[in-house]
Design a protein around this nucleic acid. Structure first.
Lengths: 262, 262
DNA sequence: GAGTGGTCTAGACCACTGT
DNA sequence: CAGTGGTCTAGACCACTCC
């Protein structure tokens, strides 16, 4: 076993033993760790790199290496879709009480901070194909960020696409000031006379881009879950495409598949 | 921008321009790349590390750095569960034709290579809680590996847990020589008089452990999708718990949620 | 300005792969 | 055995944070 692996093992054991508590600073790379382990800086940094990849340590330039605080896990279920559909035709008062994220997480509206950003976009080949429209068709692109009130970074960045011509039938939907919209997207679609038949979610994982690393407050080596949600209306058309990026180390998605009885 | 980032950018551009084709070897770290970029070994290796994390380059000790061949993507849908349930009561001939993975991927049985490994295990706290049995209860632990015939490494490693006392009612189920079992787990459960009501799948992502890196043929920096599948029978009991590890960079999971009509 | 991590160098030796 | 990547060292200088 390489020296840097032994150093990492030792630090891991000591962290888990509570020698340094979450949020506390580890000994400095130079001179503390290099002398303590009789290793050169490169070797110490290689060891720390393993711990960062495992999510055990946060490196902060100019300040130090810190034992990572466990971040609140975030759950997302596919039960939210039926729940949101049932709610879409309720009164505004009922719809305003709570949203799908709160339904999933068991939190209340005031625990979460939400921001929305709207712009017009043109359909690329991929989106045009899904929506069944020509490339270049005007779309409404909506970007949503959600974070816990007491944390700095969002745990969720979502981009949602709708065909502009369809949405503009209800001008209120074009104004981000109306977000968060009580009842969510399914109520918004309801105001356009659209009923959803099914939702398809495609999930994969990868290393984050530099942008995502910054935006989600991720650390090097942490992966992101990428979820593409495609909503089909009852005529079989795609009416919304949504791309959600979630930090892999704190997100758990739950999908329940009911089975027909024999 | 750091020097190692500039080197990585240059190499990335040249790879994407086709200067080296998939499977070809890049110039050696020493002396080629160090002299070509007038950089030290550490810096060149830092640059290559980025490309490895992006899945663009494979490092092979003693042989060289290679442009990575695109691996076949693997799709997994939740439609497989109902499909498998429908099939569970078919004749053995029908069941033998094809399995759930083939159903998902559109491949035939001969495209895939499959191995199974059985052992007895004791329920830890986590599994005991799910199954509703005491900690230490004897379980059957089955490990499955699936790979494409033309590739070396599996794209899927699954551990499945069943309560031993339940399974031993059909001794054929205890013998790995009978794997792959025609009709899969749902047919195996059918032979025990068990019908499934629903399947819950929990998905998260993380960096692979050293073991997983080796077993799945992953490269440093590639993340894994971790899927825990929990099968409930029609009385509400958990009858199987399965933990599947999938390479994040080549797996796409598709979950379709049907919605009730208004 | 002091303290800390980030990048970089030049060179040594080890471990693995193929001939 | 030659070629290649993997690990490690000792030391330099830069960039960021906080006082």
């Amino acid at each position: 076993m390489a020296k840097y692996e032994r150093i990492a093992d030792d630090l891991r054991t000591r962290i888990q033993a509570g020698e340094w508590l979450p949020g506390e600073r580890l000994p400095t790379e130079t001179p503390d760790l290099t002398t303590c382990y009789k290793a050169s800086l490169n070797t110490v940094r290689q060891a720390l790199g393993l711990l960062v990849a495992e999510g055990l340590v946060d490196k902060v330039h100019g300040r130090g290496n810190f034992v990572r605080k466990p971040r609140k896990p975030v759950t997302r279920t596919n039960g939210r879709h039926q729940w949101e559909k049932d709610r879409a035709r309720e009164s505004e008062g009922t719809r305003r009480e709570t949203g799908a994220t709160e339904h999933d997480t068991g939190l209340t509206v005031s625990d979460l901070v939400f921001s929305a950003d709207f712009r017009e976009a043109e359909a690329n080949e991929d989106l045009a194909d899904l929506f069944g429209v020509p490339v270049g068709t005007k779309l409404l692109e909506r970007t949503y960020r959600t974070r816990y009130r007491e944390e700095d970074e969002p745990f969720n960045v979502a981009k949602s696409y709708l065909v502009y011509e369809v949405v503009e039938a209800n001008p209120a939907l074009l104004d981000p000031a109306h977000e968060p919209w009580p009842g969510g997207t399914q109520n918004q679609l309801f105001t356009l006379g659209i009923e959803l038949d099914r939702i398809e979610e495609r999930v994969s994982a990868r290393s984050p881009t530099a942008e995502e690393t910054e935006e989600l407050g991720l650390k090097a080596g942490v992966s992101v879950l990428v979820l593409r949600k495609i909503s089909y209306d009852i005529t079989g058309n795609v009416v919304e495409v949504s791309e959600v990026t979630l930090p892999g180390d704190r997100t758990e998605m739950v999908f329940t598949t009911p089975l027909d009885r024999w």
